[in-house]
């Protein structure tokens, strides 16, 4: 067998083997690479590289070492999934740097962190005044995470509206002019509904590049032709406007009528409508 053929066969086999190994190692390694995992990755790659081109190394030796290097992290991950103490030992503990707004100098010293480095890490988190920080912790992977004091935290929707309407993830129902049936079914809708909505906007399916349905059944579309203006969904706004109009009507009738009985009915209805608008309004506004 010519040497090049042996190298080629080895390389292809090792490539496939490495692919399988990376699949076993999983996604976690990618998102949160610890120093140990980083070194393991490089070593496995190096062994594989040498093995594929250096014919002096026997396949047995190479495969044994690759298996040990790649399965050991898997084993550690499995054990640390079960055992908290082992996990702390392997992955390390987090260290609190700032507590109750006060810097803990001993912990800084223990992690060999200077004040400058702490300030730099805080600035990375857009914190320039240490006094704004309530709590800061150094994670095992070296990130500094910061909890700001309540009055310095950014404003959220929940701060302004006590019970904001909930929003689920929108579903993409048309991609590249093709209807996707599965997301449509997830929303409890069908092709007939989609056709009807597109007809309302006056566009054909083939001209739609992307269409999404939000959690209130509103369809938003993007067309291939960017010169055409697409109308925003109006149904919810129109509904709210109609409710306000009916409420005003009832108030008007209550003023106009001479009959006591009718007046009472209209006033009751006006009040009910106001209540309804208050209840449903937040859901209709966005």
């Amino acid at each position: 067998m010519p040497i090049w053929l042996e190298v080629a066969i080895r390389s292809v086999c090792i490539l496939i083997g490495l692919f399988v190994i990376t699949r076993i190692l999983g996604k976690k390694q990618l998102s949160k690479l610890s120093f140990f995992e980083y070194i393991v990755g490089i070593t496995v790659g190096d062994i594989a590289g040498t093995m594929s081109s250096d014919l002096d190394i026997s396949l047995q030796e190479g495969i044994t070492s690759i298996l040990i290097w790649s399965l050991f992290p898997v084993l550690i991950a499995r054990i640390s999934l079960r055992n908290k103490k082992f996990r702390d030992f392997v992955e390390g503990n987090s260290t609190v740097f700032i507590k109750n707004g006060k810097i803990l100098e001993e912990n800084l010293k223990r992690e060999k962190y200077t004040v400058d480095e702490l300030l730099e890490q805080l600035r990375k988190k857009d914190v320039f005044r240490v006094a704004d920080v309530e709590f800061a912790v150094l994670e095992p992977n070296g990130d500094l995470n910061v909890l700001l004091k309540r009055e310095k935290q950014p404003l959220t929707v929940g701060d302004v509206f006590p019970n904001p309407p909930r929003e689920k993830e929108p579903q993409t129902v048309i991609m590249d002019g093709m209807i996707l049936d599965e997301p449509l079914a997830t929303m409890g809708l069908g092709r007939g509904w989609l056709k009807e909505q597109l007809d309302k906007q006056g566009v054909a399916v083939e001209n739609v590049f992307l269409a999404q349905v939000d959690s209130y059944g509103q369809l938003t579309i993007d067309l291939y032709d960017d010169k055409i203006q697409v109308a925003e969904p109006q149904e919810k706004k129109l509904l709210l406007a109609a409710m306000k109009k009916v409420q005003a009507d009832f108030e008007l009738y209550a003023l106009q009528t001479n009959s006591e009985e009718a007046k009472a009915l209209y006033e009751a209805h006006a009040a009910k409508m106001t209540e309804l608008i208050e209840k449903v309004g937040p859901l209709l506004r966005n």
Partner: peptide, 26 residues
Amino acid sequence: ASLKAIHAGLQQLALTSQDETAQRTF
């Protein structure tokens, strides 16, 4: 007639909304 239109609109939203609280409110 307006009230009937509102009723229909609310009914449609009650059916198409994904969130249970919103569904119940509608």
